[in-house]
Structure formats: structure tokens, C-alpha cells
Design a protein around this nucleic acid. Structure first.
Lengths: 223, 223
DNA sequence: ATTAATTTTTAGAGTAATCTAAATTATATT
DNA sequence: AATATAATTTAGATTACTCTAAAAATTAAT
């Protein structure tokens, strides 16, 4: 790869990675424009550029896919993002809903030795504060099996490993209910009418949550 | 000022600050070009821009001076730079000569709350690993005095910030005495006869060193 | 299978930062 | 004070990224 990537290029690669991981193999121009808060025209320009650098595969009107070098770069940026999030939460006492914007900046710091030292300092964490896996130094991600709480039957028990929505009002609500990553959640009752459910948290407090919220809570199922 | 500064603008302001602190009040185009590794023409363009934003005072052929807003911005960037250097050395075990390049990147992260939390995490340090003062949150700098240990009176206390000699036998000797950069050194006794002195290191071990060695040890004076 | 709607691409232009080369102003020398 | 030297500024271009508006290709609908 030789040539170091610009901040913008890194952000495009990251967006392509996330979009192709959550749906279609080929990432289309409009989706990318929306996720990056820019115009389809700008996306198109960048697709040509990344394609010329062999970071993505791109055919006119057919969307983009990450090539090995591009995927590797994306994963390295994601690794840095998630390591910094762990730092911010564990060492600087940020809440898990406050760290994303700052990590978006820190992820672009270029220094392999810094990443290595940070990783050591944090004790080689494997998941970030949102429960997402941290790619290792070779870009290998250990995917976790997750399901939204909304899709599990009554009686299910599991660990909250991810909140698939960054909306601060949601995250703050969960904080108020004392629901956090690592919480043990049991579905005690399920309303078929609207999909709302009753859950117990860590075997003590009990709350009612809407189907919309349940959809955002990804659970690793126990038993 | 409202409008947030670009990375480049911040670097120019920082360079003007450093140059006007080490010599002439008015910083001239060529000096700035040299210190920023760019051309006088580029500097000239930026001077117009910063001048239009009332960050610097600038008259044709007369050089630049920082105006209050510009100085404040420069000091805030320098504060971040030095706080990150402390972090890198104290928490991530970098050597003091390895941190500059990384801090040059970290200093541009924009998040007031991050600076506040980092400062707390580090215990509100007042000098960086090179012995330079860290401006406070209002941009106030407590200037420090650096002097060779050989020139200080009995009773002086300070931090070792530089060793002005590369001779391996000196460095090995210092290693053996467990004197390293950042060590707190107190002059407990001074021999007028040959200029040799007795020092305590980090308030425990005590050693005798010659005037020749003392000349090589540059100290930031505390109190 | 045409037409309509959507998506994607091109064309042309703007902004920030940079450069080289030439022109201008200031300073130093005789 | 005139001239040589050095510093500074302007002019004109370049690169990276972005945009709007219009054209082209694809997909969906009748």
C-alpha cells in the first residue's frame, strides 16, 4: 500500500466496511452519501480514487466492495477507534454515550507504536464499550453472535453486548434504567399486542421496555 | 471568534508563538517558512488569512504578532500538546524523546471535555517531560527557569530535563546513580573548593557528583 | 415493452492549502 | 546616494475535496 491514506479516504473505507457488514455485499452510492453526510457526486469521485488505488472494487452503477488492502485499512482504523473508546470510558471516566465523536477524531492518529502501547495499557481489550469486537493487530475480528432482544422468546436470558443505535436519548434512557453493557437480561414477560416486553436486569430490578428499544438491544444468549 | 480553526491555522499560530517567544517580537516570513517547512509564499497567504480573522497583527514587510485571540488559541494547542506528552511518557511508557511527533497529531483533537478529563487523569501536571510549562485552562503560563545544576545554589530543587552530553560513560554513570530525565534533584551540599555537589534524587538516595557532571545536567527549577 | 421514477455519473465550479517564478520592497554595502 | 543583496509579496497553477445542476443509466410500474 505504501502511500498513507488521508483522513477522508479512511472515513470512506470505514463507511464501506460498516455498510457492507450490515446488508448488501455491494455498497451503493446513495447509501454511502447518506452515511457520510455528503452528496452522491462526492462519493462518486472518491470511489474512482479508491478504485485507482486498488482499495475497493468498483464498477459503474454497481457499487463498491472492499479489496484486501482497503479492508485491512478499514479494520485498522476501527481497531484504533474502539481502543480509544475503551480508554475514554475506562481511564477518563466518560460515559459510553459520550465517546463516539472523540474517538472519530482519535482513530486517525497515525502511529503504530502508539496503538501498540495503548493496547497494552488497556490490557488488550477484546470488546469496546458498545460491545463491538476490537480487531486484533492483524485485522482479525472475532465476531460475537448477537440477537436483538425483540426477537427472543419469553424466558430468554443473555448478556447485553451491543446497543445498535447511537442516539444519545436512547443511551441516556438505558443509563437511567441502569442497563449497561454486560448486564444480564431476562425476558420475564412479552406483550404480543405491541411487542413490548418486561425484563429483569442482573436478577433484581425489573423494567418495561418498548419494542423499539428492544430492537436496539443486542444480546448474547446464555444457556 | 466563533469559527473553529483548521489544523494548519493552529500550526501557524503555534509557530508564531514559539518564534516570538525566542527572539524578535515581530515574526518574519522567512523564519516562519523555515520553521514550518514551507515556502515564504505560502506563509504570506496564511498571514493574510489569519490577519483577516484578527488572530494576528500583520503589516506588509513588517512581520506578524499574535493578537489576543490568536495567542489564546496557540496556548490552548500548546497546552494540549504538553498534556498529551505527559500522558505518553507517564502512562504509555514512551521515552521523552519519542513523544513529539505523536503529540503534534494529538494536539489538534478538538474536545474541551477531553482536555479537562485528561488533565484530571494526569493529576494536573504543570510541566511536560521536556521541562516546559503547561499553560492552564485560561492560557496562563508559569514560565520556568532552566539552568545547569552547576550554577544553582545549595537548597535548590528541580527536575532534570536535559543532559547536554552524549558521552556513554556519563550516561552509564547516571544510570547507575538512578538519575534519569524527570528525576527530582535537590542540592543538599555544595563544595566551593571544586564545585562538586551532593544531591538527593527523588527525595531518597543521595549522591556526590563532580562539577563537570553537574554542568551537563540541565534543571527546571521548582518553587 | 414503454414509460416513469430512481440512482448514478458527468460537467463545471468553488475553497483551502500549497507551490514556482517573477516582481516588488527593504536593507546593507560601497 | 546608488547599487547590490536579501526579504517579501504577487501572479498564476496545482491538488484534494467538495458542491450544484444536468445528463445518462438502471430499476420499477403500468
Amino acid at each position: 500500500m505504501i502511500h498513507s491514506l488521508s483522513l477522508t479516504e479512511e472515513n470512506y473505507l470505514k463507511a464501506i466496511y460498516h455498510l457492507s457488514n450490515s446488508g448488501n455485499e455491494n455498497v451503493n452510492t446513495n447509501a454511502l452519501a447518506e452515511s457520510m453526510n455528503t452528496t452522491p457526486a462526492s462519493v462518486n469521485d472518491m470511489m474512482k480514487k479508491l478504485s485507482n488505488k486498488s482499495l475497493i472494487g468498483y464498477k459503474k452503477y454497481k457499487g463498491a466492495t472492499l479489496l484486501p488492502d482497503g479492508k485491512n485499512s478499514a479494520l485498522h482504523v476501527i481497531r484504533k477507534h474502539r481502543l480509544w473508546e475503551v480508554f475514554l470510558v475506562q481511564k477518563l471516566n466518560f460515559k459510553w454515550d459520550e465517546v463516539h465523536e472523540i474517538a472519530e477524531q482519535l482513530e486517525h492518529i497515525k502511529s503504530p507504536i502508539l496503538v501498540k502501547r495503548l493496547d497494552e495499557f488497556l490490557g488488550h481489550p477484546t470488546i469496546d464499550p458498545h460491545g463491538d469486537p476490537i480487531p486484533d493487530e492483524n485485522g482479525i475480528v472475532k465476531e460475537v453472535v448477537k440477537a436483538p432482544l425483540s426477537e427472543l422468546p419469553q424466558g430468554s436470558v443473555g448478556i447485553l453486548v451491543n446497543v445498535s443505535n447511537d442516539d444519545p436519548s436512547l443511551l441516556q434512557h438505558l443509563d437511567k434504567l441502569e442497563i449497561s453493557l454486560g448486564s444480564k437480561i431476562r425476558i420475564t414477560e412479552r406483550m404480543d399486542f405491541d411487542g413490548s416486553i418486561s425484563i429483569s436486569i442482573d436478577d433484581h430490578s425489573t423494567h418495561f421496555i418498548s419494542n423499539e428499544i428492544a430492537k436496539c438491544l443486542l444480546i448474547t444468549i446464555l444457556d
